[in-house]
Amino acid sequence: MAMQEVKPIITIRNLKAQYGEKAVLHDINADIYEGQVTVILGASGCGKTTLLKNMLRLHEPVEGSVKFWDTEILELDEIEFNNMLKKVGMLFQNGALLNSISVMDNIAIPLEQHTKLSRRIIEKMIRVKLNLVGLSHAIHLLPSELSGGMKKRAGLARAMIMDPLILFCDEPSAGLDPLTSASLDELILDLKSQLNMTIVMVTHELASIHRVADRVLFLDAGRLLFQGTLDEARVARIPEIDTFFEVGKFE
């Protein structure tokens, strides 16, 4: 089987998370494989973004284990974890750009802080990344001058600037027009095929899922109902998944 040739790059075991007293994730066991696009699916409020945040320690899980490249990240100290984060990029739902500085300075932050590259090379890299997301004209604008979709694309350029090995995307296509959303999906596929990037993405856009997903993790009310390929998901006969795809078709 093709699946066994690729090794898991992230393994999640018995992950539990809660906000205060309220449990939001129950006993999640999942694998994410190298060089694949893994889509985390599910209805709003089922814990997709929470799962993403707990994998990246933006929110500390109550118990369980999360391994990146066989390293238990929940036990790393701050310096080790920061080194791990340099190999990882994250695109936030609304771009999460720093509002007071221009798009260029936003994207330059990781390079300026973590490398000794000269300004000329940094600027060139920023131009290239912005061009990839189709935003090269906005380089000197402030985030407040961008539309929602543009902010998201600038956020993606920032997430990619360190050439991460794993890219996490929180709803990359939500709020974008179909064309931009499709070109973003193209870009994600390019990153996967050309740079062998592993991509983990939260989305509920069916069109997008069909275009990019190699594997899906289906969450429902904080539990992992299914993990596997899209075709497997269709024949798995899980009522929640069937309704998700049925209802989505008519949208």
Binding site: K124, V128, N131
Partner: peptide, 10 residues
Amino acid sequence: QTFADRADEV
């Protein structure tokens, strides 16, 4: 090719 600088300077 992927990272080629095709953008004009703004």
